[in-house]
């Protein structure tokens, strides 16, 4: 990977069933991720994905791009909710380029959107260069 390289854009669909499976696997049973009425009662537009689900999709894209390289840093601000409808799902698009390569670490610049709107603020992923197998 070299600075400026574009990585193949990934599109992942999140469904309500995914949120149920994620709640079980992660222990985060916050009802705003399952129940329309609770979500609306706290001012949300509807059931939203766990922010950590969206961040996990970034982790998934990074793993696919690097064939499972060691991640050193991963994070983002959850700036806009990903609303997941009861039918169908929400498509999250993860685009990335190689921002810099220094001291054995590769920093990726990311843009994560849903319906054309950015859902993560200042997303960041750094992987160890020597562990990239892709």
């Amino acid at each position: 990977m070299n600075p400026g390289d574009s990585l193949s854009t990934k599109t992942f669909t999140i469904t309500r069933a995914d949120l149920v499976a994620y709640a079980e696997a992660s222990g985060d049973h916050n009802p705003i991720h399952q129940d329309e009425d609770v979500a609306r009662s706290v001012g949300l537009p509807g059931v939203i994905a766990h922010g950590m689900y969206t961040l996990a999709l970034v982790g998934r894209a990074v793993a696919e791009w690097t064939d499972g390289a060691e991640v050193v840093d991963l994070g983002a601000k959850f700036t806009s909710p990903v609303v997941v409808p009861a039918e169908g799902g929400a498509d999250v698009v993860v685009a990335g380029t190689v921002k810099s390569v220094a001291d054995g670490l590769v920093t990726l610049a990311l843009e994560v959107t849903c319906g054309g709107q950015k859902v993560l603020g200042m997303p960041k992923a750094v992987v160890r260069e020597a562990t990239i197998r892709a």
């Binding site: 916050n30 609770v38 706290v42 766990h50 922010g51 060691e70 050193v72 994070g75 983002a76 959850f78």
Partner: peptide
Amino acid sequence: DLHRIVHGEQRFAYVRP
């Protein structure tokens, strides 16, 4: 109450996998 919490930001720094 958990349902009054929204996750605003999360960042991880890893020492090892």
